[in-house]
Design a protein around this nucleic acid. Structure first.
Lengths: 189, 189
DNA sequence: GTCTATACACCGATAGAC
DNA sequence: GTCTATCGGTGTATAGAC
């Protein structure tokens, strides 16, 4: 049964995302990717002629799209700022497997400095921070303070994901998401 | 002038630390390490017969020792809890180059799961959290809450380091260190 | 203690059959 | 669209001269 896709695009990207999150860019060898996806090297190159870097770009782009649709979009939608933040928190919990997954922005940001992927990572994180800052401003917070709280919120999420990965306990991550609306709107921890 | 050390142990470990922080374990190739340290492969194996894994262990062990001497030790010393936390914050600022360096615990925690290095990383982070929780308890905070604040503090440091690396702005990291005494003792952000 | 030279596995990537 | 087979390059690691 060749001639047909052995694996659907969505499923393939899911597996790729998993490998990159677990091992980072350099640690995600084509051997590992091949084993995880069930596709041989040549088949991977058929889908991604640009090789590993194209796979990483595709994974990050899809993550961007998912987040915009499910987290950042609703953040700018109707409703109380606090409720919109709660919606984002729920989406983030799903996205990060309740704290069990690493963040691609962390995994991809080690190593290189001047390449395309790093720039993509930076722009994704900036978009994320900006989107949060915007809704915080709508809650009546000054531009400067909103920006600070947004940066801190993203940092806490990143940090609790690192802690979860290292000590194998997702409690801090869950706490952070639960407290997110209060921390952003009222400045409470 | 062979027969003598081309580079002192301390300097060598400094360079190794730098490479591992920048590139993570898998990204730190012997070629890069060789270029950074100025030692050829064979010379590196003379100093570290166990190869790259031994280099990583040595780097992490030395980081542990530095932190215990300069940050975690003073945390259990004399003085007001708040002042001791300030001392730790100063040491951490130095350790992380005011937010410009990545954390080894983050860099080493991607990839493997069941190996020696991962266990070392986990025990280092647990020791760090425990040391902070202890001083917070001394400030009159319940065991459970102290533990939570300690986890959150470490997470914020990790997270702001990630954010600093990605967007190239260390402001959030510096803010976190400045606010650390208040956050841990009073629960203020 | 450092070096050059080398071994061999694995890396990312490609050619061409089906 | 997937596969087997293979390429040149780089990876970690070692032998042996000085």
């Amino acid at each position: 049964m060749p001639r047909v896709s052995a694996i659907r695009d969505e499923e393939l990207l899911d597996r790729l995302t998993d490998v990159f999150r677990r091992h980072g860019y350099e640690g995600a060898s084509l051997t590992r990717i091949s084993e995880t996806t069930g596709l041989k090297r040549a088949s991977l190159y058929h889908r991604f002629p640009g090789g590993k870097s194209e796979m990483a770009e595709a994974v990050l782009t899809r993550a961007d799209e998912w987040l915009i649709a499910n987290a950042l979009g609703p953040l700018q939608g109707p409703g109380e700022p606090r409720d919109r933040i709660r919606t984002m928190a729920r989406a983030l919990s799903q996205f990060y497997g309740a704290g069990q997954h690493s963040c691609l922005l962390d995994a991809f940001s080690l190593g290189g400095k001047e390449n395309e992927l790093q720039r993509h990572v930076e722009s994704s994180m900036r978009a994320w921070i900006d989107a949060i800052a915007k809704v915080v401003r709508e809650a009546g917070v000054s531009r400067q303070l909103a920006r600070r709280r947004a940066e801190d919120a993203v940092a806490r999420i990143q940090g609790t994901l690192v802690v979860s990965r290292v000590i194998g306990d997702t409690a801090a991550f869950k706490r952070t998401l639960r407290d997110l609306p209060g921390a952003l709107v009222d400045g409470e921890t």
